[in-house]
Design a protein around this nucleic acid. Structure first.
Lengths: 235, 235
DNA sequence: ATTTTACACTTGTTATAACAAGCTATTATT
DNA sequence: AATAATAGCTTGTTATAACAAGTGTAAAAT
């Protein structure tokens, strides 16, 4: 079995990146320069770079170049509602900010209807972007019971769900959550500034209020290269 | 902004797959046939298929063709040690099996040494593959304290870590775990039968025994298309 | 001095071409 | 009949070529 040229080239570049020859955010040599350096055609250089993009090490921008992606990560603790971590994060010098994309009444999807077990089919949909130190890291999509959404609406626009729920003195009984992994589709790749197919961690949750009544269904799609989740299990 | 041909073609194929035109495991038309169908060059067809591969929808095999990948998923509950789920899984008709790759004494890596806080630098390394219904789904790598490894060794070879620890009546005090996401490298892509860069979920854990003494450090790298984790949070 | 234009450089898209390599079934040989 | 060679399919690799499109800079026009 012969190793293809594009593999050995991307391996060389990967080693150079890991060795620190190219710093985080730095521009790689252009395709033309790499063609000269490795004495191969453009198609081979492009394939080599595509490998690195797929591995999440670099990111290309038309008209500008190929850049080494920063690998800073934020850890979210799941032993408590995740928002409690906000304090810890600022201590570490990581600032979390939010940007509201949409907040409006919609007809709830079938999956949400089942989860919320609500007779009402109109719920509030909220989409917001999550930034760490100015760089986009996750998108959160949540569906909120209409009676809650009406009162919480103005505040939900700017803040994170759990914080607001606590500030509004809404008791959280428990949270059911699932963690899985998916890949960026055409919508999320746009918002999260990642290439199509980039791995995303899906944190899907149902928040239960008093009397175990589900009050919120949501999912947070995080860039796998910027967010991870930690938890503590007591058997 | 004009949509590239390869994007619209991969979108068409994606819709056909989701509509069930191509069943799980079925072969897509060959590149030559797709060239005729869409009246484009081979390079465009290949780019379209590359998009689908990156999205994890199809998988190509040299000499054979391009096939729709099955999307069956297994959920691991994290509110209890994950192995308790083995019963639930068999009820769902999912059979978990294991294959031992290595079990030997090694010098522990720096990270493990710190985590286990052990004076001894020789630990047992165990690598095993995890199959669901015969299909490979995850690889588990764990480092075990020498005194435990010596006695557990013969059984650990075939069984899953937690089960054995319980059968051997070793009390598990607690488990610290982190969930993040990475991508298949050259070694894991081989074992897990996924393309380079395919997203993997990393479940990294430290098992604490009596008196909160760490007895095991491990990580499970799961194929994101076959495993996900669920948990329950009590605030 | 400010704005506009043009140019050079970057990556993105698409075509044609040829050969390599893996798989399968048929044919030819033993 | 069993084995080996072959032909024909598949995807993988690599080259050359041309144009499109996004970015930034330097020159030209206002």
């Amino acid at each position: 079995m012969v190793t293809p040229l594009h593999v050995s080239i991307s391996e060389k570049l990967r080693h150079q990146i890991e060795a620190g020859d190219y710093v985080s955010g730095e521009k790689l040599p252009s395709e033309h320069e790499l063609m000269k350096t490795f004495q191969v055609s453009r198609i081979t250089v492009r394939q080599a770079i595509a490998n690195l993009v797929n591995q999440g090490l670099v990111s290309s921008q038309q008209g500008k170049g190929v850049f080494v992606v920063p690998q800073q990560k934020v850890t979210y603790s799941l032993s408590s509602p995740m928002v409690l971590l906000a304090d810890d994060l600022s201590k570490k010098g990581i600032e979390l900010t939010f940007k509201n994309l949409t907040f409006r009444k919609v007809r709830s999807p079938q999956e949400v209807q089942t989860a919320l077990a609500s007779a009402e089919k109109q719920v509030y949909l909220q989409k917001k972007l999550l930034y760490m130190n100015g760089a986009v890291g996750a998108i959160d999509i949540s569906y909120i019971l209409p009676e809650l959404g009406k009162s919480l609406g103005p505040q939900l626009k700017q803040e994170m769900t759990f914080v607001v729920l606590e500030e509004c003195a809404i008791a959280i009984e428990s949270i059911d959550a699932t963690i899985e992994c998916t890949r960026a589709d055409y919508e999320t790749s746009d918002y999260l500034e990642v290439p199509l197919g980039h791995p995303l961690i899906v944190y899907r949750y149902i928040v239960y209020g008093p009397a175990q009544k589900p009050i919120l269904w949501g999912e947070t799609l995080s860039r796998a290269d910027r967010f991870c989740y930690s938890l503590n299990i007591q058997p």
